[in-house]
Write a protein that binds this DNA or RNA. Structure first.
Lengths: 205, 205
DNA sequence: TCGTGGCTTTACCAAATGGTAAAATTTACC
DNA sequence: GGTAAATTTTACCATTTGGTAAAGCCACGA
């Protein structure tokens, strides 16, 4: 245990841990925490169940590990909102990056959504500690931009919520979107253009 | 069985079925399909597990029943989009009604979201048959409004997606929203005002 | 070549879970 | 009040599931 945590661990450990995490991401994101069995993860990872429990203490540790890894990636686009940049471009760029993530990492997006849906039982404190300060900081930044007249004023918090909601919708509700968009030529481009229009009309002074 | 389906059923049947469905809605919406046990439903309903299986064939039938009931309620605000009304008012009214629903029926909202998140495994055909035609019809209506110059043109499909996404966000991600909104005494702008602003600026000619 | 320590498998287990059979009880109606 | 049907309880069961113990395997340095 101490070994696995302190040393950068052997090649085989790294390989198997990432094999397990990848398999787990696939299954957890599709079936949720309780809907996922260790056997499913084991099969997808090509390892035996006890072997998986050699690398992780239990099902919950795998899930929490995934969630923690996710946090970084997830918050990154918000972190990079630049106070020095052009306000509208910064916001639109943020929308763009979130939308790209929804398209490129749908499994992570669904994992996150599923966890929040159930009240973030395995993420609560981590959420408050990691997300809240960043959220407050960026709200303040946006407020400054608005006060300076660079953006039309709206509540920054709801602005951020609506960016999250619209961008993640495409990953989280993909099955619904797909059914309803049957026959559209370039769905990806459509979403992008639409969201740029939406937030430009909202914010452009 | 045939009795229960054909006759309007006794008072006691109605009472117990709705007791079960209410308990099941609570638990399913909180823990998801696989995360919910018949024992949990039974306890919350104040009935024994075998008694529950007297009224429903199994866990899945309870879940499907809930989903089907939900469909009606859920689609209703979209159904009432009126071709004769003022276009912008009709859209804003739709937003308003969806937001009210998210506030008043958060359990239903989360149940629906959870089902879609997992690829709608117990809803697939029902979705396509019930939602798609209505969706196409209302997209066409909105397109007509736009062509006539009553609304600024955007892709009607993405407009509807963004309305769903933003309004449901408040119910589905309530735990996240609550954490992030902590400590602000008076929100300068409520969700309702914000969304009205958002869609007005998007659509007003 | 022989240990030694990290890794993997085999063989389990206890609890939880969806579900059933049938006896016991209540209800509705005459 | 009596009886047949509807309802509820008691006592189970088979399977699934997260997890463990311990034996076996394998790579590698001495």
């Amino acid at each position: 245990m101490t070994q696995a945590q302190l040393k950068k661990s052997s090649r085989i450990q790294q390989r198997n841990r990432s094999l397990i995490l990848d398999a787990a991401l696939e299954v957890f994101s599709q079936h949720g925490y309780r809907g996922t069995t260790l056997d499913q993860i084991a099969e997808r990872a090509g390892l035996s169940k006890p072997n998986i429990l050699y690398y992780f203490e239990g099902k919950e540790e795998i899930h929490v590990t995934l969630l923690n890894q996710l946090m970084e990636t997830w918050l990154d686009p918000l972190v990079t909102l630049d106070p020095e940049g052009d306000p509208l471009s910064e916001i639109l760029n943020y929308v763009q990056r979130k939308l790209d993530m929804a398209h490129e990492l749908p499994r992570q997006s669904r994992l996150f959504a599923g966890e929040i849906l159930q009240g973030a039982p395995r993420m609560g404190p981590h959420l408050e500690a990691g997300l809240k300060p960043l959220f407050d900081e960026k709200c303040a930044l946006i407020q400054i931009w608005m006060d300076a007249g660079h953006l039309r004023p709206v509540d920054p918090r709801h602005l951020i919520f609506s960016i999250w909601a619209t961008t993640q919708h495409y990953a989280d509700f993909a099955s619904q979107v797909d059914v309803l968009l049957q026959g559209e030529p370039q769905p990806q481009q459509g979403a992008e253009d639409y969201l740029v229009t939406l937030f430009t009309r909202l914010l452009k002074p």
